[in-house]
């Protein structure tokens, strides 16, 4: 950061992009955007633009990686070279490899892994434009792509972050808030089952603040979940309406 932002929350209690502390960024979700993949989805969350594609289940090669009792989920989180201000090398960075694992582990509890042993599912997540909170948006969009591919799932996974900025607990941090703010707490959640599948924290929060932030993030997840369901239905309802 060249200039340090003096205050991230103005005197009216609004954030730098004009949101209230408990407000999400505008979200646009679409399902089935790629015809070559078995399942796909696209999300725009604020300035984030992320595409997810799912292939499988299919036979796993090399075969020694296959598990005899369940399937293997493989995730690749990748940022396009043009997704950030300064060109990012297209080679997978340490951060991307870690995020691939984090996203995979957030999605695994939602899938019935034991139904189709010895097979693999590939999930490709391509970040076209990044503005903070891409891991959460990636989980949200990847779970939609999995559902679109017809993979049996316990629930959709919705993810959202909360954090602390200028001593205020806020929802859905954007890039500047993430970097300048004092804590970031991404949460992935299966709303119908009430199960948390991802909980990370970067920064310092008191116990009370932590509790408040987790509850706020879960509330955000529930709102995102409603949009996910809407997007999934929209694909089939539109065909129905054009006929009537």
């Amino acid at each position: 950061m060249s200039q340090k932002t003096e205050t991230l929350i103005d005197k009216n209690g609004l954030r730098i992009d004009g949101r209230r502390p408990d407000e999400l960024r505008p979200i646009k979700v679409e399902v089935g955007v790629l015809s070559n993949a078995d399942g796909s989805a696209y999300i725009e969350q604020g300035k984030n633009k992320i595409l997810a594609a799912v292939y499988g289940p299919k036979e796993l090669h090399p075969k020694h990686l296959a598990l005899p009792d369940r399937m293997v989920l493989r995730c690749r989180y990748h940022m396009a070279p043009f997704s950030v201000q300064e060109r990012k090398s297209p080679a997978p960075s340490r951060r991307e490899i870690e995020l691939s694992k984090v996203v995979r582990e957030a999605l695994e509890p939602a899938i019935f892994m034991e139904y189709y042993p010895r097979t693999a599912i590939d999930v490709f997540i391509e970040v076209l434009q990044a503005d903070g909170g891409t891991r959460c948006a990636s989980i949200t969009v990847a779970s939609l792509a999995l559902a679109d591919a017809g993979i049996p799932m316990r629930d959709l996974v919705a993810a959202c972050s909360a954090g602390k900025v200028d001593d205020t607990i806020v929802l859905d941090l954007m890039d500047t808030e993430d970097k300048v703010g004092s804590a970031d707490l991404p949460v992935a959640y299966m709303p119908n089952l009430g199960v948390v599948t991802l909980l990370q924290m970067d920064g310092i929060l008191t116990l009370e603040e932590f509790e408040k932030a987790v509850n706020l993030a879960i509330d955000g997840c529930k709102r995102i979940y409603a949009m996910q369901k809407e997007a999934l239905r929209a694909k089939y309802v539109s065909i129905k309406e054009s006929e009537e």
Partner: peptide
């Protein structure tokens, strides 16, 4: 009626 994964 249309349902999505996770619907009760």
């Amino acid at each position: 009626q249309l349902v999505t994964p996770g619907d009760l």
